[in-house]
Computed example of a mutant assay.
Amino acid sequence: MKTRFILLNTSHAGNVGATARAMKVMGFTDLVLVAPRWANVLRREETIQRASGALDVLANARVVATLDEAIEGLHHLCATAMTLRDFGPPTLEPRPHFAALAAEHGQNANFGVGFLFGSERFGMLNEDVYRCHTCLSIPTDPKFGSLNLAAAAQVLAYDWREALGGLATMMMPTDHASAAVQEPTPLADAQQLAGLLDHWQQSLTDIGFLDPEAPKKLMPRLNQLFNRAQVTQDEIHILRGIAKTMSQVAHDRTPKIKG
């Protein structure tokens, strides 16, 4: 399975370095920063010092402008947010969720999991949380539940590595016999799902089901529905074909004004 740590609008360079260190000690290397406060954050002195030797993680890290770029190729997104959101994904503790996730997709090397961390001051935006499949809640003392960003990343990195079988599994030889097993149907990644939702939003508007001036929570609810369904790439094509047909029918039924 592929694992990516995504930091959204990070404001403290030290947290970037400390997160890189937390990832490296658990065997993870894919780090993406979305619109951090400092454009050169990966090269800042505080970042390098707090990385404490995890310089290869920093060297391979990417800085992107949008969440869409950060989640490309991922299939399951985990938000880290303390405040519950209406119509948001289910809030779960990491360990049982990770165990179920690894049991279901652990043999799929192409399945991508992303852990999203919001800014130190404001956390995650509602619209970013809505795009996730689950919201992880790390059990803490109810009187003091505030975790530093890098500390939260370390906890999740450890729990996720354990769910994947621990560090010892990284040293095991590949079982070539398992390669003969038929590959599962590829799931749609988060970016493909976002494109589907945009398409459906336009089509639902075209047929009059969605009022763009008062959308309420229809699209976040559909987002969660598709997340739970674990839509495949083939199903994305089907659903987008349905959306295209809805818009075409609505267009054909619109009275034409003759000049």
Rank of each mutant, 00 (worst) to 15 (best):
A157N: 12
Q230P: 02
S203N: 07
D141F: 11
S178W: 06
N126F: 12
G112E: 00
P212N: 09
Q201H: 08
I236W: 02
T185H: 09
P184W: 09
L125K: 13
Y130R: 06
M219V: 11
A168T: 14
F122R: 11
F122M: 07
L167T: 11
L147K: 08
P212I: 10
E120S: 08
A153I: 12
F144T: 07
A152I: 08
F122L: 10
L225D: 04
P173L: 07
A229I: 01
D206Y: 04
M124V: 03
F122E: 09
A194R: 03
M171C: 05
N108F: 04
T185E: 15
A190F: 00
T205M: 08
G166N: 05
A214K: 14
L196Y: 00
L147Q: 04
L222I: 03
N227G: 06
P186S: 02
L193S: 00
S137H: 12
A163D: 07
N148F: 06
N108Q: 13
F144A: 14
E213Y: 05
G106C: 05
L197M: 13
L210Q: 06
I207R: 06
R240F: 04
T169C: 07
Q191E: 03
H176Y: 13
P212H: 10
C135Q: 10
P142G: 13
D128Y: 09
A214Y: 09
A168W: 03
L147C: 06
L167G: 08
Y130A: 12
V113C: 04
L225T: 08
M172F: 06
P212E: 08
A188D: 00
T134N: 14
K216Q: 15
L210A: 04
N108K: 02
L210E: 03
M170W: 12
G112R: 00
F117E: 04
K217E: 14
R228W: 03
E235C: 01
G195F: 05
I138Q: 05
N223Q: 15
V231T: 15
D234P: 04
S137R: 10
D128A: 13
N108G: 04
A179R: 15
D198S: 11
R240I: 02
L116G: 01
R161T: 05
F122P: 01
H133C: 11
F144L: 12
D189M: 00
E120F: 08
R221K: 12
A150P: 08
M172E: 15
E120K: 10
V181L: 13
A163I: 11
P186K: 01
T205K: 07
V181A: 14
V231N: 01
M219A: 09
H237V: 15
L225W: 01
G118W: 05
G165H: 05
I238F: 14
Q107W: 02
P184S: 13
R121V: 06
E183F: 04
T140C: 15
L225R: 03
G195C: 06
L210I: 04
F144R: 12
F111Y: 15
E120I: 11
Q224R: 15
A214P: 01
D159E: 15
C135M: 13
